[in-house]
């Protein structure tokens, strides 16, 4: 579903060349739920932007749902859903419900399909109470549930989540995790999740990838990740060990 072959991305910063991502190769099969870890500035966002077609890779190839994202950005847009935890893709001044209507028009979702889908999402994510509230008045947890709904209304094959649980309280986190697990299990949606919250990883991801300094530092199951650093009991310790020992 997602394939990267020696993908690289360089930036020019004041004449110096920075390799944000280099030689990155991995593939994700349909239906997988993959956690994508890495310290700040490791290249996570760059990878995600390449997957959505917002950034063109400077070397190698990227394929998502069989398409080259940077060339077929708008076609791909109908097949993937993206959530940026740090900012909303909803319309700030509009009621949540109007934002969803706009999404329906933009993605050309059939009204019947849309109504059924929205009813289902509103039920599972418990949106009923604030569908008529302008987005700017929503709490962070409500907004994130709204953003997730917006990303899923066109029933994408792939869902890319960039820190979806950032800043959320315990209850909101739990409800979003439960929802994502169900989505993946019942609909078979492929999910790529970047996060700094290792609880997300433990609860959701069978497979974990770790990126550091723009390169893939680890790719395997959660068990393998734990085994890779003997003597460290918790996932926090393992990841801290990997972040600090890789350099």
């Amino acid at each position: 579903m997602i394939e990267l072959d020696r993908a690289g991305r360089t930036f020019k910063v004041k004449r110096a060349t920075v390799h944000a991502v280099q030689d990155l190769s991995f593939s994700i099969a349909p239906g997988e739920f993959v956690g994508y870890l890495g310290p700040n500035g490791a290249g996570k966002s760059t990878t995600i932007k390449m997957l959505c077609g917002i950034l063109t890779p400077s070397s190698g190839t990227v394929r998502v749902a069989g398409l080259d994202p940077s060339r077929r950005r708008t076609t791909l847009a109908r097949r993937i859903g993206v959530v940026f935890g740090q900012r909303t893709t909803l319309w700030w001044d509009l009621p949540l419900r109007d934002s969803f209507d706009l999404i329906r028009l933009l993605y050309k979702v059939d009204r019947k399909v849309f109504d059924a889908r929205l009813a289902e999402l509103a039920e599972t994510l418990d949106l009923g109470a604030f569908l008529r509230t302008p987005v700017r008045q929503l709490s962070l947890g409500q907004r994130m549930r709204g953003d997730l709904t917006a990303a899923l209304l066109h029933d994408p094959d792939v869902l890319v989540l960039d820190e979806p649980t950032i800043g959320l309280d315990v209850v909101s986190k739990a409800s979003i995790r439960a929802f994502l697990a169900r989505l993946n299990a019942e609909r078979g949606t492929t999910v790529l999740l970047t996060t700094h919250d290792l609880g997300d990883i433990e609860r959701l991801c069978r497979r974990v990838m770790l990126i550091d300094h723009g390169r893939l530092a680890f790719d395997g199951t959660l068990e393998e990740l734990m085994a890779s650093a003997p003597g460290h009991a918790t996932i926090e310790e393992v990841v801290t060990h990997l972040y600090t020992s890789e350099r």
Partner: peptide
Amino acid sequence: KAGTMDTFLIRPVSPWIQIATDR
């Protein structure tokens, strides 16, 4: 500057239309 440009680019509609109609 606000990063909302990315949002326009992940949608399947020309960013020109989206920006012209924004607000």
